[in-house]
Design a protein around this nucleic acid. Structure first.
Lengths: 350, 350
DNA sequence: GTGAAAGCGCTAACAC
DNA sequence: GTGTTAGCGCTTTCAC
């Protein structure tokens, strides 16, 4: 059993060293007003000299911030992604944006997994809140629009951000510009001369599915092109993508280009096209709506919508911290534009 | 500014509800002895009824465990991996093994990034220790053998595990069975009829490079095969892999199969072989020593050594928690066997 | 502006 | 076995 550990340098040491009261040190640490610049400098010198770092446990105990932000992810999906090792890097991108931004402000990001479908989701969340007492929570789909969760968070007065949600309601709504991204992808294909551009949509229970279809539709309409018979619906799974792609390609007005709403459906389309002897991009251009690592390593590498997950998460952290600090925060949803990575799967219409 | 939050249900509420003292509740929470079963049940009933969850901040303040374990990763490499989006899932696999195991024991894993080469690595680490006061730290290469780090941890009496290290010293040493894995890969190729099996080694400053070469060498020798001219050295980079592969393939006794010490060098070998018109696996069998997602999506998918990072990390967490609990822990290094995923890049010698 | 007091929720030490 | 007491390191009052 290791020895009982205590903080080696506490606020008390700093106060003694600087010859001020604990309170003054506390004020300096928290950048509060009512401290003369010279006092502040003296205290900061002592802090640096002693290598003092406040204990977040003690800070939290004192009734202030915990400097902890929880990123809530769906347990089942996340673990499945980790186990499958298909290169899905959603969590990594969240950490990239979230952890680094947290670090800049002296916060820490803790990833938590919670069962969405569980009936004890409430208990799980309450447990995390009680034990960690985070200053903020970042919700990711499918938690982002779970009223059980958002209400709980509101009741506890915890700042939270909802990623992938545009609905008004408690917390900050943040999203990628799905509609804009779909337009961008469609415009790219139109610019390449394509007239019949098929779209494989995601399931209806994801709000973003609709946004993506909408973007495609608008872009098509603006260019005077018909969407008739060019829309097929999948559920984000590989299998559903194959079926949807088949439906589109079997049509009398088969598309010369297809946009799939996610990587799995895009890969399914790629596979089906290959089986049917359709060369990509010569016979069929293909755009994926996820830029997961896989889509760059298939042949040909897929043109894809790049989802700026890291940026969105970074923004979410900033909003939560700004709210903590009492700084003003935007009222409406925060939309982050996506980019299109043009690769070898799209080419001019022959 | 959000309202001042306090714990809604504290140990006090539970004590009152169960009609016992705080201390008894504390004993029940911490599974300490000296509590009558009936008391225990009564307390647990109250805990369940009130939905009580102890605050880790308060637990830590009381001078006990923080229930936090820090996973220390190299900042530069980790961020680069995240940004490159090449499908490297080291951190994910660590979380898979580490987070889940932590959760089982009521602990939490916090990922921290620290600069290896920085001269303020000591300050960074001290800061993390002071603010988080973790019960344990998991070191990953290249931190695992950094004496600055291990000494600091020992001085602070913090349990730690060194992943990818077999050297004796403070903390627990855990590693994948690199030598065994190399033997497994070599034996696989020998069984396929190959006699000239090339090996592209990693840089000397990684201990595991040597272990891998050793495994290959032993396996070759045991089969009565010559290693002469079949060893080339790289530095884990793609570029170095190309050069090493070129050296092997240019030789008069060019190998019919190559084992590369990591995925980048394997991919480089794949590329070079393709350029030279060597079909894989028909003209050349290829084995990678990493099973990162990419190697399954190239053509052909590579036979690869699967590194059980998740298992090793889980084991590391268990050891740290066992030590915290005063339970006995192994003295020597903990070796976890690797597996070989056989895919399309290896075939019988023609 | 600064300091002194009280208390956050919990556990260690000791008494009963 | 169980309860009591005294703090952990910090922040909040509220005096000065």
């Amino acid at each position: 059993m290791p020895p009982r550990r205590r903080q080696s340098v506490t606020i008390r040491h700093v106060a003694a060293d600087a010859g001020v009261s604990l309170q003054t040190v506390s004020r300096v640490i928290n950048k509060e007003p009512n401290v003369r610049p010279e006092m502040m400098e003296r205290v900061q010198a002592s802090i640096a000299k002693l290598g003092y770092v406040p204990s977040i446990a003690a800070q939290r105990m004192g009734g202030s911030r915990s400097y902890l932000i929880v990123a809530l992810n769906d347990r089942e999906r996340t673990i499945a992604d980790w186990r499958n090792r298909q290169g899905t890097d959603w969590v990594d991108q969240m950490m990239l944006g979230g952890m680094l931004t947290c670090a800049e402000h002296g916060y820490r990001l803790i990833v938590e997994l919670v069962d969405t479908h569980s009936d004890h989701i409430e208990r799980e969340l309450l447990g995390a809140i009680a034990s960690l007492q985070p200053d903020g929570v970042i919700l990711t789909p499918p938690h982002s629009e779970n009223p059980l969760i958002t209400q709980l968070l509101e009741a506890h007065g915890i700042s939270f951000a909802r990623i992938g949600s545009l609905k008004p309601g408690g917390g900050f709504a943040l999203s990628i510009d799905d509609e804009g991204a779909a337009r961008m992808a469609t415009d790219h294909l139109i610019a390449l001369g394509h007239r019949r551009i098929g779209f494989i949509a995601g399931p209806d229970d994801y709000e973003l599915s609709g946004w993506r279809v909408e973007g495609w539709r608008k872009s098509m309409t603006a260019a005077g092109l018909s969407c008739e018979g060019q829309l097929a619906k999948g559920d984000f799974s590989f299998a559903s993508g194959r079926i949807a792609a088949g439906t589109l390609l079997d049509s009398a007005t088969a598309p010369t280009a297809i946009i799939a709403s996610n990587d799995q459906m895009a890969l399914a389309t790629l596979e089906l096209a290959r089986e049917r002897g359709l060369a990509i991009p010569d016979d069929l251009s293909l755009v994926s709506f996820d830029d997961t690592p896989i889509v760059r390593f298939v042949h040909p590498p897929l043109t894809a919508v790049v989802q700026p997950i890291a940026d969105v998460t970074a923004r979410a952290v900033e909003l939560i911290i700004a709210e903590q600090a009492g700084r003003p925060t935007p009222t409406g949803p925060v939309i982050t534009p996506a980019e299109l990575a043009i690769r070898a799967s799209t080419a001019p219409l022959r």
